[in-house]
Design a protein around this nucleic acid. Structure first.
Length: 239
DNA sequence: AGACCTTTGAAGTTG
DNA sequence: CAACTTCAAAGGTCT
């Protein structure tokens, strides 16, 4: 894509600079915002609100808002107030002819602030939750019947077929798995059932969500000192 | 360095 | 509730 030459002083491209719309941006951005930054933003909002609230009328107004007199909970709770679709209609009665806020427009300003604070509160709790999740050690999923079978049979296939590529080995193991009798398979299903039981005892509150990780790298896997299925079997819990 | 391949099954999510 | 998605293991291959 050709780039605008801005060295000649012609800055035509600057005013309407393209801002790419990012589908995932909201989520991504959310993760990048540190709690401290949000605190700063939030406190500045609060400070501004407090420093500008000198007059008695505004104090009364604020009280009314706190009482719920003027500030009705939005159906879009959690979103910045200025992003609401019908805000234009809400604002218009408070605007003067030149677009400035009329005295009554302070209501809108405070409403926007309240909405923004609400949104920031939710954002902060999300960031906090993400941080807590990252601190938690990754808990691996228990092995299913086929995985247990693979772990046992892989060395045999490698020795027999002289292949090391896991994709190929797994294809062979998949075929062999289907050729197993019901009885032979049930042995692994039973093992898997016990593994799941042990896992649920070890991590009672762990759901799939907590088990999931975006994508675990090989390095991470090697470094991982989490309890594996092999460790469960060592526990030898009778079920 | 890290994603991908390839398999099955469990469990969570989505429509 | 069916269909879809993710992730458990493994190690060579590819980007």
């Amino acid at each position: 894509m050709p780039q605008l030459n801005r060295a000649d002083g012609d800055d035509l491209g600057a005013s309407d600079e393209l801002i790419p719309f990012k589908d995932e941006g909201e989520q991504e951005e959310k993760r990048n915002v540190s709690g401290r930054d949000l605190d700063d933003v939030k406190s500045s909002l609060v400070n501004e609100s407090e420093t500008n609230s000198g007059s008695d009328s505004e104090v009364t107004l604020r009280k009314q808002q706190q009482d719920g007199g003027l500030f009705q909970p939005s159906p879009y709770v959690g979103y910045p107030f200025f992003m609401l679709p019908d805000l234009g209609n809400l604002c218009s009665p408070y605007l003067t002819a030149n677009g400035a806020l009329a005295p009554g427009g302070r209501t809108v300003r405070n409403l926007v602030k309240a909405g923004l604070k609400c949104w920031l509160n939710r954002l902060m709790s999300d960031v906090q939750q993400d941080k807590e999740d990252e601190k938690k050690p990754h808990i691996k999923k228990p092995l299913n019947a086929f995985m247990l079978y693979m772990r046992e049979e892989r060395p045999k296939v490698v020795a027999q077929c002289k292949v090391k590529e896991s994709a190929t080995i797994n294809q062979i193991l998949g075929q062999r798995w289907h050729s197993l009798s019901k009885e032979e398979q049930s042995k692994y299903y039973e093992l898997a059932r016990k593994e799941r039981l042990v896992h649920s005892k070890l991590y009672p509150a762990v759901g799939q969500r907590q088990l999931r990780k975006k994508k675990q790298t090989n390095t991470d896997k090697r470094r991982s000192s989490d309890m594996t299925s092999l460790d469960y079997s060592l526990l030898n819990i009778n079920t």
